[in-house]
Design a protein around this nucleic acid. Sequence first.
RNA 1: GGUCCCAUCGUCUAACGGUUAGGACACCAGAUUCUCAAUCUGGCAAUGCGGGUUCGAUUCCCGCUGGGAUCACCA
Length: 472
Amino acid sequence: MNNAVRVRFAPSPTGLLHIGGVRTALFNYLFAKANDGQFILRLEDTDRERFVEEGVEQIIQSLDWLGLHPDEGVWYEQKPGKHGPYIQSQRLHHYREYAEKLIQQGLAYKSHITPEQLGSLREQAIINKTPFVFKQHMEPDGQDNHSEPLPIRLCVPEGVTKWSDEVRGSFSTPHNLIDDFIIIKADGYPTYNFANVIDDHLMQISHVIRGDEFISSTAKHAMLYDMFGFERPQWVHLPPILGPGGNKKLSKRDGDVDVLDYKSKGYLPQALLNFLVMLGWNDGTTQELFSPQELIDKFSIDRIQKSPAVFDITRLGWLNGEYLRNKLTQAELVEGIKPYVPASWLEDMDYFKRVLELDRERIKRFDEAGYIMEIFFDTPKVDMALLCKKDSQQLVRQWLKSTITALGDCQPTHDGVETTLRELCDKLDVSAGRLFYVLRVALTGRTEAPGLFDIIITLGKDESIRRLQALL
RNA sequence: GGUCCCAUCGUCUAACGGUUAGGACACCAGAUUCUCAAUCUGGCAAUGCGGGUUCGAUUCCCGCUGGGAUCACCA
């Protein structure tokens, strides 16, 4: 019972869920599932100034799209769970209660120093090139009356805090390096450093899996656990994901604003997850493709990477194509592409499916389907310069005419068309390459398309002839 | 600047101290010959530097260099 695995993903709705957040959520999810544990979604909304209204909804939708469903905590409808509420702004009484305990023991105090005063102390320290750590004795004198609300600071005792991370190893931080940090802000809300400890304890979190930006504040958390006599969780800090340059964390500047963007661009959640899991983890073999279940079966903390990984979207593109080509049933493919093509294309579903199979290996993302498939639904505009790029207009004209008559009485099968057209090449004394180029452009307006015979039989003899006729 | 972390092909990464340092993406070439795509074959390409320890370092230790994180009444 006591070694039950309980992990949480605890985003702050101060923005939208981005790639880094998803990777963190994924690792938490996999670890929970791999150990028959609970995956909890908690909202850390204690920053009322930067709170983004649509953030909560977007976070839930993102996780839902990716299939990272929590067992407990926040969801469209509150998930059952006996440790709620799971939204920090609804848990203020807990933080107050624990802060009060600390105050009574003399381990925390109301701080009178203003941000301005603190700021100038820090500036002074920088000028003097001396390290600056704020402690209670630096509080200004004459701290009397003013009734405005004050923040509460932890009175960091002397000593050293040691802790260890499951992927990085041991850390040791002397307390003289730690500020008397704020645990309850003047507005009554707790800071992350405080709330996270209280909640993780109350919710019986066994493993704290999070981004490595928290590594330097973990000593504070460990210290708090000790001061309260709470059992410490295991810490697992994930390596950062770097932007394309490889020299800074992936950020909005790299287009990493909202994972739902990947959905609208036509990426598959399985592909995105498969891609993300490889950023900082591998199973030790050369396997590249993992189903969600395989991931759960194989995931383990001891194979998490220490070093950062660069986000390479080319690789995501490859993976997505791989899934589109080999992992999706036709029905799933149709379903996925639906939103990206005109509804009218779907009226003749058999035809749509035939076109789809023809183009399947050409589609890397759903959003490309419209462009790739449109030549089978709309009469293309043909650029004369392109059509006559390799041969004179006169010649092209003649070829088109001959093709129309040849097509007129040929078998409407792939082989029938092939035989007919190759015979035509002989008759016209022209290479297949030249004639087929002209026909492809004439029929599709493009130089890149499926095989010519496939185009003709899919389009149908009549439609093909009609298109050629129209050109003349 | 203080504290801490990290370091294998361009990228994701593999390698009980002993391998011709492996795979994948990307790239290039060839094959399939009607283009593109897909597929197959081949190729290019890495242990940051300097010291140790060792019979032997990608691997262990130290220094350097480089990169990153963090130093808020943000998380």
